[in-house]
Amino acid sequence: MDISRADLKHLASLSNFSMSDEELDSLSGDLQNIVSYISELNALDTEGVEPTYQVFEMENVWRDDEIKPMDANREELLDLTTEEKEHQIKVPKVL
């Protein structure tokens, strides 16, 4: 599997990285090597094997439907943002 320049740009975009062409170039060799390495898994026969996504014994966890206080309150959480206005997080206009 060869990672093309277009693939790299696509991955940077999926990852939400504003990368310069120089930075993309600097990552290309490493990413190609990693993909080549993980492709060795093709050698393993997994025909008919069920996939595993979690290793804990999945079960329903029930609790009473009651409101409990959070560890942090609204003000403390809003304090974490860079820009706040009228108890809301402010971002640049979207449209």
Binding site: D7, L8, L31, I38, L41, N42, T52
Partner: peptide
């Protein structure tokens, strides 16, 4: 992050992520 998005992206999911989950 980029490798993660690669193995999860359409066209490669079965060959990488699903394969790994089976392994």
């Amino acid at each position: 992050i980029m490798i993660g998005n690669f193995v999860l992206s359409s066209g490669f999911y079965d060959a990488y992520f699903l394969k790994a989950a089976k392994a």
